[in-house]
Design a protein around this nucleic acid. Structure first.
Length: 659
RNA sequence: GCUGAUGUAGCUCAGUCGGUAGAGCACUUCCUUGGUAAGGAAGAGGUCAUCGGUUCAAGUCCGAUCAUCAGCUCCA
């Protein structure tokens, strides 16, 4: 390089690691990637210029910070662009195979992409394979993907006249009505309205799997026409696709419905009704251990237990305001008529709140009594839509680890913090470390959806934020996710298939105290309104255990394992000693099974392994003579010999530590 | 609820062109007493989800219903 290069013609680009480099002005993202290395240029999908994602072909004309985006780029930007382009390629493939198909929306999602399409043709599995092949064909044709900016009016003309795509026209006339100029991406004969960015060329797509077809509504509105949604996932290499499919297989093995049946934890029966889980003995042990754990923790933290009936007079729910909000997800009322023809209606309780509020108002409360923290494992019933049911995770009858905390306004933030702390403690103890926390706020555009005044909501949301900040939790904001009576802090985890589920929740409520006319006598001798916190660390016992099954793949920690130890004698001669060992474990509070069948030890071990029993005690003549046990650990194999005392101490300690 | 797929023994599945049902595991009994993931033999187990239709004949073809699964809308 000579010293006297034309400074006008070069610009400085700075990379994320702080290094920078001079490049000719007008260089594209591809040129920049190429200047760094051939393999990066090969893998480059797009570029981020001064924080803005752009097509790889975009020219850099000023000094800028740039980032080359590859498929594996942290933060999923690369995958997102890749899958978004894949959805366009799928649309092109569908258009080529099924001319006349109309296209709705085709975004990238967390696990791939989809496209909503309208067609007379009913797409089936065979079509998906054909479309996959066509997509790979489009990839082979190596078509450049080209961006075109045009005025909105021109785009409307383009989509109504040459593309004949009414859905795109609707988006242009509705969602994008403020925009002057829009962008269109062309790839061969296909074109789509899209803000981009996109892959430079269709050949980047090397492997694709269209996973399923389902129905969706145009713009998510059930009053609009139904469309066919085709889901898929794509990768820049066949190897990555293979890995992805293997992961899916693995996830299926963890499905709590499958493991729940195999490990005899719970069952569902048509004879009882759909969405009404039945706890089998082994599942009941897990549930009761979890309940005991939380009860003890709540006792330490100043909660008092209560019990309330499973049904309540319908007027109670009308008064709470739950009735109109929940009416489409309730079991129909039970109607009772007495001899005089008077009618009474009861609901299976869809929530525990009103019952607890009545307990609160059953006596005169002083400011000195607050906070009052009422806790109940309350079983509730909601008639969820049949398509929503999902084993334990989404049921029609479930038990909330519910509590209502009645406190003074000056205690509120502290109490929210304490509830957050309990929830975090529960999750940490159970080994959930990857949890998303969402502050669920109301949507001011839809104030009529909520109870209470705007001022009340402002205050409640301020308090919730303050508590979340003080507890130093990372959260995302969910506008419109609030309950009708107040904002919430929701704890969200994923199931084996990557679907998100809300578990724990902490909710602030200024509305119910008003509706139930709750009060306490303040130090000034006058009545005041308390504030209510609704909270449930597990959320529901059913859902929590469902997610826990998937999280642990059925390998529960010792304190939760339905059977903690399997005692496996090798021959009949040692049955007496095995019985002694078994009894000693039982006497020490250990859940132990004794297998005295005349089966070979290999088979007994196999069954204990398949049953995911944490510890196996193998007892033969040697152990009987030396008064020891031979220990085997689930998934880890032979652990050698131990004295009875050492084994017992080890178990007791492990159970106590909940490790 | 909507769209699609599926429904055969307790479980996992096979069942061809429509001709009245099959395997493995599990279960029961017997034999076997074996040292760290499946010992052997015999037996029992089915209104082919339910209801209706076509047919001489239906697990198989057609329709409806129910349930399960995926997604949509909704929620702990």
């Amino acid at each position: 390089m000579s010293e006297n290069i034309d400074v006008q013609a070069t610009v400085t680009v700075t990379f994320p690691d702080g290094r920078n480099r001079s490049i000719p002005s007008g260089s594209s993202g591809y040129d920049i990637a190429q200047s760094i290395g051939h393999s990066l240029a090969r893998e480059a999908l797009a570029i981020r210029i001064n924080g803005e994602l752009a097509d790889l072909g975009t020219a850099v004309t000023d000094d800028a910070t740039v980032e080359i985006i590859t498929f594996d780029h942290p933060g999923a930007a690369g995958k997102h662009i890749f899958w978004h382009s894949a959805s366009h390629i799928m649309a092109q493939a569908i258009e080529e195979l099924f001319p006349g198909t109309k296209f709705g929306a085709g975004p990238a999602v967390e696990q791939g992409f989809y496209y909503d399409i309208a067609s007379e043709h009913r797409f089936n599995e065979e079509d998906l394979q054909k479309i996959e092949q066509q997509m790979l064909d489009i990839s082979k044709r190596s078509i450049d993907i080209r961006r075109e900016e045009m005025p909105r009016e021109k785009a409307i003309a383009f989509f109504s006249e040459s593309r004949k795509d009414p859905y795109k026209v609707e988006i242009l006339q509705d969602t994008l009505k403020e925009a002057d100029s829009v962008s269109i991406y062309h790839q061969g004969a296909f074109a789509d309205l899209c803000s981009g960015p996109h892959l430079p060329n269709t050949s980047k797509l090397k492997a694709v799997k269209l996973t399923n077809i389902s129905a969706s509504f145009w713009r998510g509105d059930s009053s609009r026409e139904s469309m066919q949604r085709i889901y898929g996932i794509a990768f820049p290499s066949a190897k990555l696709l293979k890995q992805h499919l293997a992961r899916l297989e693995e996830a299926k093995k963890r499905d709590h419905r499958k493991l729940g049946a195999e490990l005899e934890l719970f069952m569902l029966s048509q004879d009882v009704g759909s969405g009404l889980p039945i706890w089998l003995p082994k599942g009941a042990i897990i549930r009761s251990e979890l309940e005991a754990f939380l009860k003890e923790e709540q006792r330490k933290r100043g909660y008092v237990p209560v019990y309330t009936p499973h049904i309540g007079n319908i007027d109670l729910y009308k008064r709470s305001g739950h009735y109109p909000y929940y009416s489409d997800s309730q079991f129909p009322p039970l109607t009772y008529k007495d001899d005089l023809g008077r009618e009474e209606q009861y609901l299976l309780k869809p929530m525990n709140c009103p019952h607890h509020h009545l307990i609160y108002s059953s006596q005169l409360r002083s400011y000195r009594d607050l906070p009052i923290r009422m806790a109940e494992f309350g079983t509730v019933y909601r008639h969820e839509q049949s398509g929503e049911l999902n084993g334990l995770i989404r049921a029609r009858g479930f038990t909330q680890d519910d509590s209502h905390i009645y406190c003074r306004p000056d205690q509120l933030v502290d109490e929210i913090c304490a509830a957050i702390d309990l929830t975090k403690f529960v999750f940490t103890t159970l080994g959930f470390d990857d949890i998303e926390v969402r502050l669920s706020l109301h949507d001011p555009e839809n104030q009529e959806k909520y109870g209470g005044t705007e001022e009340v909501w402002k205050q409640a949301e301020k308090d919730v934020r303050e508590a979340a900040d003080r507890m130093e939790i990372n959260y995302v904001i969910g506008i419109g996710e609030a309950s009708f009576y107040g904002p919430k802090i929701d704890f969200i985890v994923r199931d084996a298939l990557g679907r998100k589920w809300q578990l724990g929740t902490v909710q602030v409520d200024y509305v119910m105290p008003e509706r139930f006319d709750l009060s306490y006598i303040g130090s000034d001798g006058k009545p005041h309104r308390p504030v209510i916190i609704h909270r449930a660390p597990f959320g529901s016992m059913e859902r929590f255990i469902g997610v826990l099954i998937e999280h642990t793949a059925g390998n529960f920690p010792l304190w939760l394992a339905p059977v903690q130890v399997a005692v496996l004698p090798i021959t009949e001669e040692v049955h007496a000693y095995a019985e002694r060992v078994h009894q000693m474990l039982i006497d020490n509070g250990i859940r132990a099974d004794l297998d005295i069948r005349s089966e070979k030890i290999g088979k007994k071990i196999r069954e204990a392994e398949v049953g995911k029993i944490p510890y196996m005690v193998i007892i033969g003549q040697k152990e009987a003579d030396s008064e020891e046990i031979s220990l085997r650990r689930h998934r880890k194999g032979d652990q050698g010999s131990l004295t009875l005392q050492a084994f017992k101490d080890m178990l007791v300690k492990e159970v106590r530590n909940k490790s």
